[in-house]
Design a protein around this nucleic acid. Structure first.
Ligand SMILES: [Mn+2]
Ligand SMILES: [Mn+2]
Ligand SMILES: [Mn+2]
Ligand SMILES: [Mn+2]
Lengths: 221, 221
DNA sequence: AAAAAAATTTAGGTTTGCCTAAAAATATAT
DNA sequence: ATATATTTTTAGGCAAACCTAAATTTTTTT
């Protein structure tokens, strides 16, 4: 059985991300956008992935992952997130610095490496951004967090993850003192622009824009 | 400034290894052999590396690294050896299992990653096979070890490294109890086939063939 | 110093993953 | 339902890294 290339793995991971929890069809254009390539190049790759049995592809109809394609995607995601934990927990990187490095490390192929890394890290269940880490068999939790925009005034929630993974957003959260696991209490919501004042960990009050609220995943306590 | 590809880095590393401590010219055929490619492919790559100023190349005359090429080679070697230390010291791999994985990890580009890894490992000076690790500036120790074949009967030496890095050889040493840092005393050398009996760490006596002696780097105490 | 052998380079192809431009299919608007 | 717009595919090419076969250069032998 031939190995999947770096590029093929990235396509599979992207298809997984774009098809979301419901396994919706992913369009050629969406893939072109996400992979920073042109639609024609995507079509080329889709043919190859279909030939290898990794995706279901009918011309003009979009694609979904096959079972075998999903297995590959989940394995890459597992590696990505485990390496991110390593970079943050062991090497002392910030959560805003690890994505690009993990983007490369995720393609190192050794299964035994992944399992030893997982054990060394203490079998973490979430990565530094709050994203769940698939287990060795490809089981992936779907923790139904909600957006901070759905939380009522007076409610206290735990900060569990981010939707936007951009370094600039994560750095903004750092400056606001909003870290994974922080307790957030919605003190007030501005009618006009939906900006909010939030009490962080019971002491500091900060103001956050709707843009920020829309990207914060939280959980009732 | 364009980045060097995976493949270019491997060629530079191979040229470094083959030119030895004296910086001798490396032949096209030797490179073809070491990189498991054909001579014609090597010629293609040599032209490219010469264009990029990484090697000195005159047709039919063999190649040497330029200062800039050597810098790249040493950086790749540094990464290879640091990752090997990580795999053995932190993840618990055996010294016979890490080479192929490090062969991939050595191409992960981030400078800051390398420096954080180095610090995390406690700035190791040698890799699990006894090979010296270049520092961040590209300074590489040249410890003048000698071969066990050069040691007289009765002499006690420290086991410092291996010439052959093959898993089968390393596993053979494991079975013989010969590890890095072990004290070896040459008890007797067989006239006929130069095989020897050796006392390991002052207790066990083992017999080793010339083939093994030729691949053991040792140091007087 | 030729002739023969070995090493190296050139010539011409292949595959992978990308591109632009043009054609075809699908979706949307009138 | 037709026309228009959008999406997707096809056609034809390019660069990287490899290949085989054929030429060329260097080295070794006679
Ligand atoms: Mn990431
Ligand atoms: Mn992450
Ligand atoms: Mn190695
Ligand atoms: Mn080594």
């Amino acid at each position: 059985m031939m190995q999947n290339s770096f590029t093929e793995e990235n396509y599979l991971k992207t298809i997984h991300a774009l098809s979301g929890r419901d396994g919706l069809d992913v369009s050629t254009n969406a893939l072109a956008e996400s992979t920073a390539t042109r639609a024609a190049s995507v079509t080329d790759m889709l043919k190859k992935l279909a030939d290898k049995g990794l995706i279901n592809y009918k011309k003009y109809q979009g694609v979904t992952l096959t079972t075998s394609g999903e297995k590959v995607a989940l394995s890459v995601i597992r590696k990505h997130r485990l390496w991110e934990v390593f970079l943050v927990e062991k090497l002392g990187f910030g959560w805003d610095e690890v994505h690009d490095i993990a983007e490369e490390l995720e393609h190192i192929p050794s299964d035994i490496l992944v399992e030893k890394l997982d054990a060394y890290l203490g079998h973490p269940r979430f990565d530094p951004h709050g994203d769940p880490i698939p287990d060795a068999k490809g089981n992936l939790l779907d923790p139904d967090y909600r957006l901070l925009t759905d939380i009522q005034i007076g409610e206290k929630v735990l900060m569990m993850g981010v939707l936007d993974h951009a370094a600039s957003f994560l750095q903004h959260l750092d400056r606001s003192g909003i870290t994974l696991g922080a307790v957030l209490e919605v003190k007030d919501i501005n009618e006009y622009d939906k900006s909010a004042s939030i009490i962080v960990n019971g002491d500091r009050t900060i103001f956050i824009s709707l843009e920020v609220s829309k990207n914060l995943l939280v959980q009732r306590r």
